[in-house]
Design a protein around this nucleic acid. Structure first.
Length: 374
RNA sequence: GCGGUAUUGGUGAAGUGAUUAACACGCCAGAUUGUGGCUCUGGUAUGCGUGGGUUUGAUUCCCACAUACCGCC
């Protein structure tokens, strides 16, 4: 399915662009941030809470849903939107590549696919590009991903070269079996830290032809500088008229830097994971609500935040919930952190419109890093 | 009043005549980037009820005292 992506405005100073794409759920604005709902749920949150946090696209996961409850059950329920009753916007499913490669041994990655053991019960499993697309066709997300290899960092040039070539062959195989015309299929650019390989991977993936392009294998342990370079190496060779998605990146600063380099979509488990572990993003840096200094702090997580948590509760109360292991604490922080990032991309969109993204980025970074230090 | 047993950090506790007093919980911090895991990693008793004594050396042995519990008058 063509996403009918439109670039509405391009910066004169960098590669940032303001855009939108359309699905049956309506118009989605870019740059955007997608919260992650691995097992057909953004952990601790219901669809209404996601809506209140301004979430639009939600990401779910092929590997997990394949194992539990199984793609046929999701299909028979009416598809992923019906199954999880998510009607606020599109759903994207990851191919399972990332999970599989964290479970598989290097020697179990073969041309045909990957052999590995279930994290649930140790059952031996096999996932191939065809199988991944077949499962995703049944799950019924609006956007699905090619099955790629996400190599660890650091990897040698030779390993990475073989890996991107195999990922390209897998992309072709996946595209060939993709038969759900309601779904957009994205290709994935790999290549690690190597400019030549990122370039080749991008050009060749574009030749195959996809509805959008992802940059994978970033934020796997490399420095920020390397990560930003990797993004640049890829976006330079991606077509202007297709959506670009930087997989797994969700640090606020990294989002700003990614947008400046031409990225439209981001996803990350971080906002919800750090929330469950007691942390909140604020414009003045990340804070750990479990710290004793918040014991008697009767102010919201953040002034002028319109999220449900900040509108109704104090840091002292949220800290009490976390220390007492009450799940409401995790929910409130999850709502806040998602809203923090959806607000960040809203601000980014406004600043692309006025072509002031560089200034906005510097100011944001200064507050986030420096003021947070005290 | 007489006898017995016990006394180790915020808590529950292990332990030894002599390098850094185990472990758990709690507490205090940190991590977290296409989420198996409300997870992981650190820190947290300059002292073993108090006062004496024996000893090269005592939290560990002895004595007294204090406190607690259990018996008996």
């Amino acid at each position: 399915m063509d996403l009918k992506f439109k670039v509405l405005k391009k910066s004169n100073k960098n590669m940032a662009r303001l855009g939108e794409f359309t699905t049956k759920w309506g118009v989605s604005k870019t740059p955007m941030f997608m919260p992650v709902g691995t097992q057909a749920t953004v952990k601790t949150l219901n669809p209404e809470e996601l809506k209140s946090a301004h979430a639009n696209v939600v990401l779910s996961n092929t590997y997990h849903l394949w194992l539990r409850p199984g793609e046929d059950i999701v299909k028979d329920s009416g598809g992923l939107h019906e199954f999880m009753n998510y009607k606020n916007g599109p759903i994207l499913t990851d191919s399972g590549g990332f999970q599989v490669f964290s479970l598989a041994k290097k020697e179990d990655i073969k041309e045909e696919g990957v052999r590995f053991k279930s994290h649930i019960d140790g059952t031996e499993l096999f996932l191939s590009p065809e199988k991944s697309i077949e499962i995703q066709n049944k799950l019924g997300a609006d956007i699905i991903m090619s099955f790629d290899e996400c190599p660890p960092y650091p990897a040698t040039y030779e390993y990475m070269e073989n890996s991107i070539e195999r990922t390209l062959r897998w992309a072709i195989r996946g595209k060939k079996v993709h038969n759900n015309k309601e779904q957009a299929l994205f290709g994935i650019v790999q290549g690690g830290e190597f400019e030549e390989l990122r370039k080749r991977s991008a050009i060749e993936t574009v030749k195959i032809g996809f509805d959008g392009y992802s940059i994978g294998g970033a934020a796997v342990g490399e420095t920020k500088e390397v990560q930003y370079k990797e993004v640049e190496y890829a976006t330079k060779y991606l077509p202007e008229d297709k959506v670009r998605y930087l997989m797994g990146v969700g640090d606020p600063i990294d989002i700003i830097e990614g947008v400046k380099r031409g990225v439209d979509i981001f996803d990350c488990v971080a906002p919800t994971r750090i929330a469950r572990h007691g942390n909140a993003h604020t414009r003045h840096g990340k804070i750990n609500l479990r710290n004793s200094k918040y014991k008697r702090d009767f102010t919201p997580l953040e002034d002028n935040c319109d999220c449900y948590a900040c509108s109704n509760f104090t840091k002292a109360y949220i800290r009490h919930l976390l220390i007492s292991e009450e799940v409401l604490g995790q929910r409130l922080l999850s709502i806040h952190n998602i809203r923090f990032l959806t607000k960040l991309v809203e601000d980014i969109r406004e600043n692309i419109e006025s072509d002031t993204l560089e200034e906005f980025g510097e100011e944001f970074k200064r507050k986030y890093y420096e003021e947070g230090k005290e």
